[in-house]
Amino acid sequence: MKIQLKRINNDYHFELKNERGHITYIDSKAMVGGHDLAPSPMEYVLMGVAGCSAIDVISILKKQKQKIKDYRAEVDGTRVEIDGAKPFKEIDVTVYLEGDIAPEKAKRAAQLSFKKYCSVSKTLEPTAEIKYKVVVNNIEI
């Protein structure tokens, strides 16, 4: 896996491209000298958690013939300063599912994602506690 980064302006706005040619952008917040033209690198980390777990959960539920009408997630990261850096200390994920889905299957799919399959979560696990909850058809399970 390889990513290329190219500086766009004289500050902190960058273009990133993967090996398949997909392009995205990164910038820093204005308060630290950027122009807030794109998500920050740490926001992309949280997006990675959301996306990785979504792919896992949906894949698991599809294999179990569950009918997913809608999938959303909210991810909230708490950071702590350590020697000038601010890594995530805790990440809270809420998965919202709608459809003809057995609640126990949804809960098990999320558990498998966060504890076993999600490479992003597993990468962060040594330094950040990742907690999750699942809401199916507006009922937390």
Rank of each mutant, 00 (worst) to 15 (best):
K122G: 00
K63T: 02
E19K: 13
I101N: 10
V95I: 14
G34H: 07
H22Q: 11
E19T: 12
T123F: 10
D11Y: 09
V49D: 05
E129K: 15
S121C: 14
V80W: 00
L46W: 05
K62R: 14
H13A: 08
T78V: 12
E104K: 14
A50E: 04
F88C: 07
S119A: 15
C118K: 10
D100Q: 12
Y44D: 04
V75W: 00
N9W: 02
I26Y: 10
S53I: 03
L61Y: 05
S59M: 05
E90A: 07
D11P: 00
A110I: 05
L124Y: 04
Q111D: 13
E125R: 05
P126S: 08
I91P: 05
I101Y: 09
V45Y: 00
K67F: 01
E15A: 12
K2F: 08
V32H: 09
D11W: 01
S28I: 01
E43Y: 03
V136H: 01
V75E: 00
G21L: 06
N10A: 06
S40H: 00
R20H: 11
I141C: 11
Y12K: 03
C118M: 10
T78Y: 09
I26W: 07
K116N: 14
R79F: 02
V135L: 05
R108V: 02
M1H: 08
G99R: 09
Q66A: 08
M1A: 11
F114L: 11
L112D: 06
K6Y: 04
E43S: 09
T123G: 04
G84A: 08
Y12F: 15
G21I: 05
K2C: 01
L124H: 05
G33V: 07
Y96H: 14
Q64L: 14
N9S: 06
G84Q: 08
S53R: 00
D83F: 07
P41Y: 02
L46K: 06
S119Q: 11
K2N: 12
I60V: 11
Y96A: 07
D100T: 12
Q64C: 04
R20I: 06
R20D: 11
K65S: 11
D100E: 14
S40W: 01
D56F: 04
N10S: 12
L97W: 06
E90V: 10
Q4K: 14
V75Q: 03
V95Q: 04
N138L: 00
Q64G: 07
Y44G: 03
L37M: 11
D27N: 12
F88Y: 15
G48Q: 05
A50Q: 03
K131G: 05
F14Q: 03
D76G: 01
H35I: 01
G33Q: 08
N10L: 03
K116Y: 13
L61S: 06
E19A: 13
E19C: 06
V136E: 00
C52S: 09
E81L: 02
E140I: 05
Q4T: 13
A128H: 06
C118T: 10
K65E: 10
Y117S: 08
G99K: 08
N18A: 06
D83E: 15
S113Y: 10
T24E: 01
S59Y: 06
K115P: 05
N9D: 15
E43R: 05
E43Q: 15
P126D: 07
L16C: 12
I139Q: 14
R72N: 12
A30N: 09
Q4I: 07
G33W: 07
A73G: 03
P87M: 02
A38N: 09
M1I: 05
I68R: 04
A73L: 02
A102S: 11
E129I: 13
R108C: 04
L97P: 09
M47R: 03
R79T: 12
